[in-house]
Every structure is written in C-alpha cells, then in structure tokens.
Design a protein around this nucleic acid. Structure first.
Lengths: 118, 118
DNA sequence: ATGATAGTTAGGTAAATGCTTAACCAACAG
DNA sequence: CTGTTGGTTAAGCATTTACCTAACTATCAT
C-alpha cells in the first residue's frame, strides 16, 4: 500500500513532539481522561486537545467519551509499525556491515598481504 | 539528561518526512554522495541539502566531503535511540496488560462467579 | 434551576517548514 | 584558461504548526 508512507509520516510526526510523547508515556501506564493528560503539560486544554487529535490521527491513541469524560488509551499496533520500519533499516545496514566484515576477513586470510595495495 | 528530549524531537521529526526516510533507506544499503540521494527525489538539490541538514542534526547521518563530492552514511546509533524509546513504551503497556490478565485470571478461579456481578 | 466540571469549537497569531530560483564556489577534465 | 560537475548559500514565499483566548455545550451535583 502506498499509504504506508502517509501512515509513517503521521506516526513519526506524532512522536516528534515532547508533549505528545509525554501523553503516550502516560497512557502506556494505563488509560486516562483528557484532563489528566493535560495536567502535567504547560499549556491550555485546547492545545492538549489538538495534540490528542494528532495522536488519534496517527492511530497511536483511541478514545471514547462516556458521560462528560473522554477516556484515552494507547493503541499498541501503531507503535509497532514505527518499530518495524526502524527494524527493517537495522537489518539492512547490519547485513551490509556483516558482509563487509566477511569480505575483510577473507582478504586477511588470503595470503600475508596487509591489504594496503594500490 | 534533559536533552534526551531534544534528541528524540530531532530524531522522530527527521523520520517524519518521506523524502528524509527515503534518504535513510538508501543509506541503509550503503554510503552515497548527495547527488545520488537527490536523484530519485522530486525536488531541487538545495531542498535535498536541507533535508540532509535535518538528518545530520538528528545524528542519523554523517557526511564527509572529499574533493568536490560529499559522501553520506547512516549513523546506526541514532536510530537505536528511537527504537529504545518505543521499546520502553511497549514494555510498559505490555507489563500492564500482563498484570491485568493475571488479575482477571484470579477473579475467574476464585469461585464459580461469571464476573458479571452487581 | 444553578453552578461547577469536562470537554469542545472558533478564530487569530507568531514561528517553523518545505520548498523554490538565482547566484556562487571549488574541483577536475580537456 | 574554459567549461562542467557537485555542491553550497541566500533570499523569498506558501503552508502548516503550535499555541492562545473567548465563547460555548453537555453532564453531573445540589
């Protein structure tokens, strides 16, 4: 899917803000109402709402309103998407370094040359 | 360190752009000069340079200029910092869900009640 | 019904982002 | 020396972002 890209945009972008990360950190320890997410943050409630919108659009958080309180919770699936992208990159460069290491080792054992030829 | 926060800001922010991710993906497969990073991207060279600046500021990429060509390579350490943050969150909510599961299990085994009490 | 609590909407603003073009510099090739 | 390649700097511009305040709605308690 080409929208994988858009997903990652929203995801990483959501995580790029300290207030939003703080919210995710709080929610990682359990669900919470909006006002509790807002309390430690040095900004107005409407500002927190906007951050919450970003988090929901990124799929990191879902929320439901019952009575007059909206309770928020993390959605673990989204985070693991980001993790997967990072992981894929690690595999790539690690594989490359491994192959490079192998290559250097074969050079080493293939005769007494110190490799400084040119 | 409080600057851990600033680091994560720069890191996730750097990864939030598709052009920058494309550059990182390319570099995961091996070093490349600026112009090669630029070639597949639908934008001007100066624009690519700015993205490169962002990636370097985030510590994701380092580069060195020899002659007139600047060669870029990923710096694996930075990526794993992002990974660690994500991982820490996973541990938290997973631990919580595990404890919740345990709790539900004790409720279940503690008598023939189906749990729908009140 | 009155008032407090929890959240939402609307509208505005200052700063940051992601580009652009044009001009420029340094290295190397002929 | 001249032109070309690879990169860089500068300046400008449209859009987005991250806030704010003020006003408003809906629930719940008394």
């Amino acid at each position: 899917m080409l929208n994988q890209q858009a997903d990652l945009n929203r995801l990483f972008n959501a995580l790029a803000d300290p207030a939003r990360r703080a919210m995710v950190e709080r929610l990682s320890r359990g669900p919470a109402p909006v006002s509790e997410l807002a309390r430690p943050l040095p900004m107005s409630l409407p500002a927190v709402m906007q951050h919450l919108d970003v988090l929901e659009a990124a799929g990191l958080v879902r929320s439901e309103k019952v009575g007059r309180v909206r309770t928020c919770a993390i959605d673990p699936a989204a985070l693991s998407q980001a993790e997967q992208w990072i992981n894929a990159r690690r595999i790539e460069w690690q594989g490359r370094l491994d192959r490079l290491g192998e290559y250097l080792k074969t050079l080493e054992s293939e005769g007494g040359d110190d490799g400084s030829s040119h």
